[in-house]
């Protein structure tokens, strides 16, 4: 019997038994294989043309300077990268991105994990669903809307936040959050946590639901309290999700743009600038496209690193499972 290829019945039938028809069969087989490229050709073209080509092109652009008004282009080699190192705003932006990542990990990974554990500990299924749904709502809304909303909330004149602080006796804390160099970035990060925690809570909830009930039953038999169970079972059992969320959060934190543009546009005095907004500022406000492309290269390096980390992490997990 000739082994039939389940995917290529045509090849199997024409393969027959004799060696003479083997060559055309092979050819035909190769043709069918090649024909199946038609499934992916559109995606390869679109993804290639609009993602890969521009990203590669970015490196070429980063080694030029272009005067948009005259259209003149000069080759400057690595000058723009040299400028990156000397630009204090780039370092400030990197710091802000890192702060963004760090605080998001605290609130949107660990905070959300604890929250998900609390929610999943509830008896009523309806309340669990309701909680998850309500917390998720801000994640579904455009960051322009939430950014503008918080811009108003932070404003001393409308002052919902400041009025709220005063009413609970924390009036001393009230300040024009987005106007001060020291607090602007934190005001934005806080908005981001408000918007994003529901999303990660939802994912952690799903991960926790997958933990076998028997583990908890056994722990209760052993007399483990809720806190003990959290650390002995829930945390280790959702470790994979936690790791993945950490990586995803870091990647996201290095791509923030919308909320900064809407709330402070990087000010005051560039104190809330992140890499994305500084790129925009340089390329599209200052016309320094080459320098903007060099900043883009930094974003590329960071996201590639976290991306590689994610691939490594998921593949490692696959092996383990």
């Amino acid at each position: 019997m000739v082994p039939t290829d389940p995917h290529f019945p045509g090849a199997a039938t024409s393969g027959g038994t004799s060696h003479e028809i083997c060559r055309p069969a092979l050819l035909r087989r190769a043709l069918i294989r090649a024909l199946s490229l038609r499934w992916v050709v559109l995606a390869v073209l679109v993804v290639g043309a609009f993602i890969y080509v521009p990203i590669i092109d970015n490196f070429r652009v980063s080694m030029t300077n272009r005067d948009i008004f005259t259209g003149e282009i000069s080759q400057v080699g690595l000058e723009n990268y040299q400028r990156l190192l000397d630009d204090p705003v780039v370092w400030r932006a990197l710091l802000n991105n890192t702060l963004y990542a760090g605080l998001s990990i605290v609130f949107q990974v660990f905070g959300a994990f604890l929250l998900a554990a609390m929610i999943e500990g509830l008896k009523s299924r309806r309340i669990r669903n309701l909680c998850r749904a309500i917390y998720f709502v801000p994640s579904a809304i455009s960051t322009t809307v939430t950014g503008l909303l918080f811009y108003f909330l932070y404003q001393p004149e409308v002052g919902l936040l400041d009025a709220g602080l005063t009413s609970i006796g924390l009036g001393a804390l009230s300040r024009p959050w987005l106007a001060l160099e020291d607090t602007a970035i934190f005001g934005i990060i806080a908005m981001s946590q408000w918007q994003g925690f529901g999303y990660s809570t939802l994912l952690f909830s799903i991960a926790i639901q997958k933990i076998p009930r028997e583990l908890y039953d056994a722990a209760i038999m052993d007399g483990a309290g809720p806190v003990r169970r959290l650390f002995a079972i829930t945390l280790p059992m959702s470790r994979e999700m936690t790791g993945l969320m950490v990586i995803v959060t870091i990647t996201g934190a290095f791509q923030v743009f919308n909320e900064i543009m809407v709330m402070t546009a990087g000010g005051p005095n560039n104190s809330s600038q992140v890499l994305g907004t500084w790129l925009y500022q340089q390329a599209f406000i200052q016309n320094e496209f080459g320098y903007g492309a060099a900043i883009a290269a930094v974003i590329f390096a960071v996201t590639m690193l976290t991306g590689a980390l994610q691939v490594w992490y998921t593949s490692k997990r696959r092996v383990k499972l």
Partner: peptide
């Protein structure tokens, strides 16, 4: 002559 935080207004 000014009050508050002009940079946030």
């Amino acid at each position: 002559c000014t009050t508050g935080a002009p940079n946030g207004t």
